[in-house]
Amino acid sequence: MRVVREIALHVFKESVRDRVPYTLVFFAVLLMATSYLLGQLTAGQEVKIIKDLGLAATSLIGLFIAIFIGIGLVSKEVERRSIYNLLSKPVSRRQVVLGKYLGLVLTLLVNISVMVAALYGVLAYFWFVSDPSVKAGWETPALDPALMVASGLIFVELALITALALVFSTFSSPLLSAALTFGLFIVGHFNADLKRFDQIVASRPVAYLARALYYLLPNLTLFDVKAEVVHGYHVPATAVVSAVGYAAAYIAVLVATSVFIFERRDFK
């Protein structure tokens, strides 16, 4: 697995050389600026708003990384034909796919970690400067460990999105891959509605189709516990474990599909 590791580290290096660090700087600046403004307003809601904003931004920037960097790095390798050189080395196509995927997941992990650390940093600042009377009004502690659960699940969700992007970029153009991945991200968040479709429509075939799609399409609502965490609701461990298990199974199928396609295609 030495080869897989080398390919993965190369992906990470390329993403660092690409634009990923700039998105992080953008995120940090945005967070700092917002917290400064909120500090001026002192509504007693600042910690909640920062958490809301921070998690939403982590998720959104992570999505940006997963889609654009993920698709970019894989399809660029094929379109610009650097894959010719890589595949002439003692490397199998399966190792290329696995290496690319793990490298992208590593990139996500590092970027999300940095963003979460920045979020905790801003929250620590507020905790430090706020009056005990203000702190008493907070629904959740500023440095709530539950934020780790929320951001951990964001990471798992994005690992799944990356696997989707990987499948698409093994056979279609970057633009189409991005559109398809983004489409599935949106659909995945409204997926739960498909389950209730049979209550809305009378037509049986349509209901069956909706039910089939429900099981086939990724159910991304499982990973979204942002609101619960921000408002201090308990997230049961079983929900977390089943979400992670679901993601692992889904990712395994997607990566296997990518390998299957990649092993058979011509690099023209």
Binding site: E14, R17, R80, R81, S88
Partner: peptide, 13 residues
């Protein structure tokens, strides 16, 4: 060893 026609590599390396 293989040298492709018009070889291309990674811009940022």
């Amino acid at each position: 060893g293989y040298l492709p026609e018009n070889p291309y590599f990674y811009d940022n390396l």
